[in-house]
């Protein structure tokens, strides 16, 4: 079981450390890393988009990289992202919200267009108290809807420095504690990201 973490930033975008340093530490943790900095490298390379409209999203999707991540949070952007099959991952759909940002419409569209809904573990790790309670509640709601409509889920750390990376063993245990079944946790950690990198989610 080798965890594939596709939502990680280096200093080529918003991160603090160089791609080399991130990859070196990922190797020590036995994690396969995808850096979504919008730059092509000799590692899985993706791009994180923050579109303002459907047209803007389609224009930004023109850049050819291994995968495309849309920065969620706004319900309108969440809906736009899951309606576009060229988008691979809807990242942190609950960013800046009290609710999960995922309803039945978003979950159904994500299943139809094979857009993976992200379970951002960095948001659990970097919060505490009531903030963490809200994040966990939102993840559980997203999990419930994903189960009902068959939407793919993907686990990632959203790390912006090497200290934010986590090993597969710990991530698996954390997902199991949140309420993921064994196969759901493995799908989110390995199967879905591997399919994205092979281009099988288009």
């Amino acid at each position: 079981m080798r965890f594939i973490d596709l939502h990680v930033h280096s200093n080529l975008s918003t991160g603090a450390d160089s791609p080399e340093k991130m990859l070196e530490h990922a190797g020590a943790l036995k994690v396969t890393l995808g850096l979504c900095d919008g730059a092509r490298g000799d590692y899985p390379s993706g791009i994180e988009l923050s579109p303002t409209s459907r047209r803007d999203l389609r224009q930004k999707l023109g850049k050819k990289l291994d995968y495309a991540v849309v920065c969620g949070g706004s319900y309108r952007i969440n809906r736009l992202a899951v309606a576009e099959s060229r988008v691979d991952i809807l990242a942190h759909p609950d960013l800046g919200r009290r609710d999960s940002g995922v309803d039945a419409i978003v979950a159904r569209a994500a299943a139809e267009n094979k857009v993976a809904l992200e379970v951002n573990l960095g948001r659990i790790i970097n919060t505490s108290g009531t903030g963490r309670v809200y994040v966990l509640r939102n993840i559980k709601k997203t999990l419930m809807l994903a189960r009902k409509y068959g939407a793919p889920l993907i686990a990632s750390t959203g790390a912006e420095s090497w200290i934010g990376l986590r090993g597969g063993d710990g991530v698996y245990s954390l997902l199991r504690m949140i309420g993921f079944q064994e196969d759901e946790a493995l799908d989110a950690m390995v199967t879905v990201p591997a399919k994205i990198l092979r281009g099988e989610m288009k």
Partner: peptide, 21 residues
């Protein structure tokens, strides 16, 4: 549960660190 808790560790007294199982 213990492995999950170890994964959640990220800092203490302004020292940033992570625990790998």
């Amino acid at each position: 549960a213990v492995k999950a808790c170890l994964t959640l560790v990220n800092s203490v007294q302004d020292k940033k660190f992570m625990v790998h199982v």
